[in-house]
């Protein structure tokens, strides 16, 4: 199948992201003002991304590889809408579930049950959906007897299990994953890995950042290699992985 007649899920066109690094960042009004009058505010411009373009098609599992600071996380944030690019456009066709950091919407004082609804709402699920999937989430997380306890009494492993269960209960059209998630004890690790594989093979379009080249080879069909904020190479996963040397 040629790429042109497949259904595009994401079109990323000439995306640039410029950061202004103030020489020493001042957080206060007074400092900013005094600097404005004395030596002026000094900025160092820094492009985290420079004219990045690529497409992602339905059913793709796209790996993004590159060194630290190559712009991998930035492009994920731009695609999921958290950051707005300085230049360029991102077109999205379908609902996106970003799994950038699990459980960032959790509130430690609320119970597990309350957190399922809160975090679910933050991830954009609606009420009916959450009500119908509530048991499934609890079952998957294996937290039955603790679900009414406040989260501050949970162990970190339990929190990750709950977060993972909430995040993967949907079958999103586009899933964005920063590093593969393997959480909890060995038993749960296997389960979560299996769930990820199930999502990835189930027709979901996946964007996936990892440093583990074996994982990339194993799971991705296409790879984009970012280097210093630009696309160095993109194409079939085996091809790129063979040429990729850090």
């Amino acid at each position: 199948m040629t790429e042109e007649n497949r259904e595009a899920k994401l079109r990323i066109r000439d995306v640039s992201m410029r950061f202004r690094l103030e020489e020493d960042r001042s957080g206060s009004l007074k400092e900013t003002f005094t600097k404005m009058f004395t030596k002026g505010l000094k900025f160092r411009e820094f492009y985290a991304l420079h004219d990045v373009s690529f497409d992602v098609y339905k059913g793709d599992v796209l790996g993004i590889i590159g060194r630290n600071g190559a712009g991998k996380s930035t492009i994920l944030k731009i695609i999921s809408g958290i950051m707005k690019p300085t230049k360029g456009t991102v077109e999205r066709y379908g609902n996106i579930v970003p799994m950038l950091e699990l459980g960032s919407g959790f509130d430690m004082d609320l119970s597990g049950r309350e957190n399922i609804y809160l975090n679910g709402a933050i991830l954009g699920y609606d009420k009916e959906f959450l009500l119908s999937k509530y048991n499934e989430i609890v079952d998957f997380s294996e937290l039955h007897e603790f679900i009414e306890m406040p989260l501050r009494n949970y162990s970190s492993g339990m929190i990750m299990r709950l977060a993972f269960s909430i995040a993967t209960v949907v079958e999103p059209e586009i899933l964005i994953v920063d590093e593969i998630l393997a959480v909890g004890v060995e038993n749960f690790q296997k389960k979560s890995r299996a769930r990820m594989m199930e999502l990835m093979s189930g027709g979901t379009t996946v964007l996936f950042v990892s440093h583990d080249m074996n994982q990339i080879r194993e799971m991705c069909n296409r790879v984009v290699w970012l280097d210093g904020g630009t696309v160095r190479l993109q194409g079939r996963s085996q091809e790129i992985c063979d040429r990729y040397r850090i």
Binding site: K77, S80, G81, I82, I96, P98, L100, E101, S104, G105, I122, L123, G124
Partner: peptide
């Protein structure tokens, strides 16, 4: 801040 930098709302 923790939420705003992680999820789009």
């Amino acid at each position: 801040a923790a939420l705003i930098t992680k999820v789009y709302v």
